[in-house]
Computed example of a mutant assay.
Amino acid sequence: MLNALTDNHGRIVNYLRLAVTDRCNLRCFYCMPEHGLNWLSRSELMSYEEMLRMCRVMAGMGIEKVRITGGEPFVRRGIMQFLTSLSKIKGINELTLTTNGVLTAPFVPQLKDIGIKSVNLSLDTLDANRFFAITRRDEFTNVMHTLEALLKHNINVKINAVVMDGRNTQDIAPLVELTKDLPVSVRFIEEMPFNGDSHQFNTLQWDYLRILEEIQLHYPSIQKIADPAYSTSYNYHVPGHQGNVGIIAAYSRTFCGSCNRIRVTPQGMLRTCLYDDGVLNIKDALRKGDSDDEIKMLLRDALGNKAKDGRQAELQRHDIHESMAEIGG
């Protein structure tokens, strides 16, 4: 691959997950405390101009796919203008985003117009009462309107559901049932320790194997299908269904060997692994006046010291009680 960016383990890195804000209009208990977080000030965030410059530099190094995350991207003012500019950067061939769907529905036609073909929609339950209990907000109807709008405009939808013991395991079968009549991919995600709180995340009750067993209990005919290159999910299909099912071993970390991604947090911190502490402050480099070539050198050095996997990265860090909103979902 021309201009391929590789890490010290020989893995090609061509995918950036960019968090544009730490703020969110939900308070999902597995992501942050009920009172929220100590939100970043505007000056602490990367500006859109800084993010666009960073993405142009990275595109010149082989980054081909960018996923916009948060927090919730649509709470940041001017997000559509930013996405429009980002979609025009040469070398970025795939632009996607992850959203909770609360504010997204009105923007769906514009997302389609700028070429966004796929959206990840966070939806942990199909029950309005459980939705409120999990998110601490009464926004279920708005999220379902977003799902309808995305499907109406033929945008591929991946529904992300975090599986939580005692909270939403009864939703596993109903979420799989969505794939019968809708062309969606429902992905069940192991719960992770990034809750923004100080309480200890002990043992995982629902790992990817137990999730699969629960699905097979209700859908014994479910079949394993091929996993795409660099896939973080094990993928399955129920015969006769339009959509597919995926299971992401986010805590078990069985997919690290094929990792092709890096993350940049809202304050511009490069993380070469979800579980590391952050290895390079790109925002500081930009504001210091570093040239594009100097930034490229910093990025290559950072990738040259990437942990082999999430377990190794976790051993090297100091704190694992951040919120996913601070890291970038």
Rank of each mutant, 00 (worst) to 15 (best):
D7R: 02
N8F: 02
R11I: 01
V13I: 15
Y15K: 09
L16A: 06
D22K: 05
L26T: 12
R27Q: 10
F29H: 10
Y30R: 04
C31G: 12
C31Y: 10
E34N: 13
E34G: 09
L40I: 08
S41R: 15
S43N: 14
Y48G: 00
M51D: 02
R53C: 09
M54A: 14
M58V: 08
M58C: 14
G60N: 11
G62D: 11
I63E: 02
R67V: 04
G71E: 00
E72R: 09
E72A: 08
P73Q: 07
P73N: 08
Q81C: 10
L83A: 02
I89L: 09
N93L: 13
E94Y: 13
L97G: 04
L97K: 03
T98H: 08
T99N: 01
T99I: 08
G101M: 07
L103M: 11
A105L: 06
A105R: 08
F107C: 01
I116S: 02
I116G: 05
K117R: 15
D124A: 07
D124P: 00
D124N: 15
T125N: 06
T125V: 08
T125W: 04
L126V: 10
L126Q: 06
F131M: 11
R137H: 13
R137E: 13
D138T: 12
E139A: 13
F140N: 05
F140P: 03
V143M: 03
M144A: 04
K152E: 15
K158C: 09
K158P: 06
Q170G: 13
D171L: 03
I172N: 01
A173P: 02
P174L: 04
V176M: 00
L182P: 00
V184T: 02
S185F: 10
V186K: 03
F188V: 07
E190F: 06
M192E: 10
M192S: 07
D197N: 15
T203E: 12
Q205F: 13
D207L: 03
Y208A: 12
Y208Q: 10
L209W: 11
R210M: 12
E213S: 12
I215M: 10
P220C: 09
S221T: 15
K224W: 03
A229T: 12
S233T: 07
Y234A: 10
N235W: 02
N235P: 01
G243K: 03
G246P: 00
S252V: 04
T254G: 05
F255S: 00
C256S: 01
S258W: 04
R261T: 05
R261G: 07
V264M: 12
T272P: 03
G278E: 05
V279S: 04
N281Y: 08
I282C: 02
L286K: 00
D292P: 09
E294L: 10
K296C: 13
D301L: 14
D301T: 14
A302S: 14
N305V: 06
N305S: 13
D309L: 00
G310L: 04
E326C: 07
